[in-house]
Design a protein around this nucleic acid. Structure first.
Lengths: 334, 334
DNA sequence: TCTACTCATTAGAGCGCTCCAACCCTGTAA
DNA sequence: TTACAGGGTTGGAGCGCTCTAATGAGTAGA
């Protein structure tokens, strides 16, 4: 399984190693005859350049390292696709890693990425301490996605969670809802801005905010609704859930309690996961431009890697509301 | 941003480069005094070994390349987690790549992985032509997950799709169902064995199989059920869907037609995705040991990489049925 | 005291590639 | 004819590391 080297190709084509190098890199100043001879020799031998040797010799890297905190989360998967689309066309290679939402494993994952001396790294929703981020940032251009950070050297790309909540509340208010509750995402990433956005959107309309502690899960959403029902009093006519999973859990708890969605209670999710699009669910939700986030992150990273920019840039993307079947005007007062 | 090299550490610690190398690799035959001196110098300089230079010099690689055909698919994400758990503890590095289910992009992705001269590569649900696989296999130990292949040099790990269908049919038959339809996954990966398993399970029980063309999507499942309804005649009392998405689509179409699940029709999914576990869905489904598949794939790959085995090994894992709320005995004949 | 042997340490070659400076052409101008 | 371009081509150094063989310092045995 010993693979051929440039030397082998050079020998077979009857040229020097340096010429093979030029051909492999597509240099324009190589005669046509030699070029084809080299190319033929290369395919005959099944040769392809050794990425590591190349990177070592040129002291440049085509590797962009990506640490994904949670691979199972479709949100990150789509951000990665966005990254990938840019990275690939620019001739870089993605090296993805995961830390499974565990700080020490994430730390190791980041170290492992850095050991490749990458052109840059992107951390998607990291849960590592900021010291790890700071450390990474002075070893390679560093980009944070779905995680804000005030370090002067790291770039960030985030969804504007406050604006997303504003969209949800605005939609519900237009439908005539005045009693709108928010199921809070707790310590989850982006939960804080979503909550802030909800509260200020309510205040702006002179409405009374109601934040119910919950979490980013199906069962968390169900539990929050049961808590709400147990309180007695009049139930809100609409709910702005922490995310889609949370919304789906809330819906099942509402239905179990004999309430219909959206006739009795409207529900808005957040994230527009594929779950929300299922006809069985058909959830009105806030869509984050995930692919776009990936693209922007990749572009910012490449700018840095090419030394075209040195100050940090913080991008905030605007979410959009996707209206489906879980929102409607509130029931007539009875 | 120039990072320190072994030379720098050696100079600072007052020893030779070779000694630093030994320390970094944890060699036992280094005196205690020098070892600590080297380690201190390394941390002071923020040194960490250059993975590529190391790999080049040692002609060995710690990279295990993984090409994931579809990152958004939670199935693969969990297989990757299984791989990762083994790979990491064995001191290897995962390099993940994606081809977005596009043959030519997957081909490029595989080439890119090979350019790192990895210790081995794993292709998860690849859609590349088998020539690409054959080519990869003679450049690095190659493992196929969720894709079978008769090449004498490649290992495979698969879920036993036939056994999964058998489990589903068996469960339904025990409940008393005799008219059980299968929504077929079409050209999707693993659709063929699932269909075969269904057909033979039906025959084994003297039941008449009914295969309805469909696909691995929500809308495909809904369409197949509408086709079924449009045929007239008696509807099957149970459905073995192609996968979970397909099952959920089927359920919504059934409900739209005024049929209740499971009172009128039982539905079994396949994959046990997180979707199936949602209380709102609560789908009876076939669970594949995804994490286990990843673990086994990693172990087999490392065996090969270490030269402990040279013949191909094909592993077939047994699925399990997860019974939830979408299956029940058929309605009494009326 | 000298040889034998062990063990920590080191110099130097080399992994596969890129880069630079030098080189060799052939063609054109003087 | 000689000089001079200027593009195609090449040897050699070097990227950061590992590995082998050799070095030197002890330590024990004769």
């Amino acid at each position: 399984m010993r693979r051929p080297t440039m030397e082998d190709v050079a020998a077979r084509a009857g040229v020097s190693r340096a010429l093979v190098s030029l051909v492999m890199r597509g240099s324009p100043r190589v005669g046509e005859a030699r070029r084809t001879a080299v190319l033929r020799a290369a395919t005959e031998l099944g040769y392809s350049p050794h990425a590591m040797a190349r990177s070592l010799a040129s002291a440049t890297s085509t590797v962009i390292g990506v640490m994904v905190s949670d691979l199972r989360n479709a949100f990150f998967a789509e951000v990665v696709e966005g990254l990938d689309s840019v990275i690939m066309t620019e001739g870089f290679d993605l090296v993805i890693n995961t830390g499974a939402r565990d700080p020490s494993r994430e730390h190791r994952a980041v170290q492992s990425l850095l050991s490749f001396r990458p052109a840059g790294i992107a951390l998607l929703g990291p849960v590592v301490p900021s010291s790890t981020i700071a450390d990474a940032a002075d070893k390679a251009p560093t980009m944070l996605v779905a995680h804000s950070c005030a370090l002067p050297t790291v770039d960030t790309v985030n969804d504007d969670g406050e604006a997303g909540s504003e969209l949800a509340v605005s939609h519900l208010a237009e439908q005539g809802h005045r009693s709108i509750a928010h199921l809070d995402g707790g310590g989850g990433s982006q939960a804080a801005p979503r909550r802030r956005g909800y509260v200020s959107a309510m205040h702006r309309r002179g409405l009374q905010p109601l934040v119910v502690p919950s979490e980013y899960t199906d069962s968390g959403g169900a539990r929050a609704v049961r808590d709400l029902l147990a309180r007695g009093g009049t139930l809100p006519t609409a709910i702005v859930a922490a995310n889609d999973f949370n919304a789906v859990g809330a819906i099942s708890a509402l239905e179990e309690a004999g309430l219909r969605v959206p006739q009795d209670v409207s529900v808005v999710g957040y994230d527009n996961t594929s779950l929300a699009a299922l006809r069985h669910v058909s959830l009105t939700t806030v869509d984050q431009p995930r692919h776009e986030m990936g693209r922007l992150a990749a572009e910012a990273l490449l700018e840095r890697a090419r030394g075209q920019r040195s100050e940090a840039v913080h991008q905030m993307l605007h979410p959009a509301l996707v209206i489906r079947a879980t929102t409607a005007p509130p029931p007539p007062r009875g």
